[in-house]
Design a protein around this nucleic acid. Sequence first.
DNA 1: TTGAAAGCGCTAACAA
DNA 2: TTGTTAGCGCTTTCAA
Lengths: 343, 343
Amino acid sequence: MKGSQVTIKDIAKALGVSASTVSRALKDHPDISPETKKAVTELAEKLNYQPNSIALSLRQKKSNTIGVIIPELVHFFFSTVINGIEDVAYAAGYSVIVSQSNESYEREVVDTKALFNNRVDGILASVSRETKNYDHFQSLVNRGIPMVFYDRICSAVNCSQVIIDDFDAGYQSTKHLIDQGYKRIAHISGPLSLLLSAQRLEGYKKALEDHGLPVVEELIVEETESKDERVAKELTNKLLDLPTPPDAIFANNDVAALGAMLVIKERGLKIPDNIGVVGFSNWRFTSLTEPALTTIDQPGFQMGQEAARLLIKEIEAKEDEVIEPETVVLKTSLIVRKSSVRN
Amino acid sequence: MKGSQVTIKDIAKALGVSASTVSRALKDHPDISPETKKAVTELAEKLNYQPNSIALSLRQKKSNTIGVIIPELVHFFFSTVINGIEDVAYAAGYSVIVSQSNESYEREVVDTKALFNNRVDGILASVSRETKNYDHFQSLVNRGIPMVFYDRICSAVNCSQVIIDDFDAGYQSTKHLIDQGYKRIAHISGPLSLLLSAQRLEGYKKALEDHGLPVVEELIVEETESKDERVAKELTNKLLDLPTPPDAIFANNDVAALGAMLVIKERGLKIPDNIGVVGFSNWRFTSLTEPALTTIDQPGFQMGQEAARLLIKEIEAKEDEVIEPETVVLKTSLIVRKSSVRN
DNA sequence: TTGAAAGCGCTAACAA
DNA sequence: TTGTTAGCGCTTTCAA
């Protein structure tokens, strides 16, 4: 921001016209004569004039920037979401500021405030695992900041959201295991305070019921913390040490899946013969990592696109226009490899 | 940015003082009487006054924002770098705008311009694989924009940089294989137009020479494109099909390592008995993925921190102060697992 | 100790 | 068709 930039005034002075004329000429205003227009645009080109977006923001009370709150960037799913967001945002002329909460409630509160102070035009947010209080979001919405939740939504706050059909994901995953003949299917759940964990659990239960299998409480374990795979390993060990252990596991997230896979390896069990496994897996090269794991693919890029689209629509809505919150539901798909199929 | 915000004027009016007094009171100016100061700060607190950072930016000709050009976010190494950057930037009061070039030269050119137009105070950049022309960077530097390169540097442009000692990484990796008794060590190199690829290659050669092993041209292959692992697989097949195939492979990057591992699996070869492998590996859960692969750990977080630190130092330098470009060199470390060691 | 005024770069209503 | 003026929110000289 050093090396002082060419401004509209410079052009005006050089051409002996007023600043407003230059401003108008630059935006192709119909009132400006072709000659002036030509002179201005040519000089602007020559001097390499670049409009000062900060002055613009101040004037128009619009920063053309959207803020993104993301739990963790170092995560295939979430960084894919960012890709989708940038894709749509840049095309629409918005910059993107990304803030990581690192799954911390406090960081999330600080970050939302910081974004607001930076006068972003709107916020895309996915709540942290820790978050149980939503006042920091609600207060922004109350002030009229457009906000859209993605993936980890917050139903307490009334705004648009883009989610994955987690009930369906849970249902399909469980059904896939049932279809292969597994009968005692365990579920390693994520923290049930996260809506999506709760819904995956519901899908799991419904699939069991629909296929005449009992829902066994001891086969459902909740992984409340999951910075790494240790908790999941413990839970898996607990499951496999049951008097009647499960013959399959549906793991709620990638960390859970990893923990389960590690324990299974350690115990020398073979997939799919000794045990079936389906899990969300977001590490990068699935092809290499676990040919035996049936994985659930989450449409991250698409989610980012949809979320950005909704937010920009809301930002650009006329003052008087009332925007009804929308909910976009995306479906997951199961990636089944030959090596993971029984029979 | 809707829901009009409390401004200094509002506070001034309410208190019957001038805007300048409020401004001074808020920044604890010594000339202001304790009573006024108290009244102002209390009202500001009560009305939840937030300074308008855009007005500030315009006034001070400083946006307190730094731009980051990153080849690809969906990548463990690079997203770790972002973590490091945010860590330092936020602590110093800067926002971070991230732009992905997606390894495309054209995107990179567009992105640098866009960041500049957004009046970032400085830019952190890592050049795309495709980039061979550096004019877009040079022109920014010429205009006095502080710039720091990280990881994928560009020696043609004279500014600070944070790099990994890739010569050392190449040397240590190769030496590790030599120490285990491998004698025909192949190298899958990245595009040699990237400085770091060239340096890893040099380290590889030097290690061979230092240990009395010949540098065999046919054992060095260059993976010029690497969107996915297919090219690397081809190259590995080519190596293994040589009349005298290599007994070990040093893979230049994670995609190369993946390709090599896949081919080795397909051919039923066992590591470390039939073949030795060392590779850069940046996928997330290395523990699960490849216990047989000796991996090279790159200090991403630290790199982000150092780069941000250098940039901010440059941004905040006094006008007259001359900042000499600095180069920070970080070392990699080898992660060797028992299962990857021969003998 | 405080206020008035100017200005950062741009745009838009109003005047000419 | 173009210029004048005011103002977005803030800071800072200069004057009181």
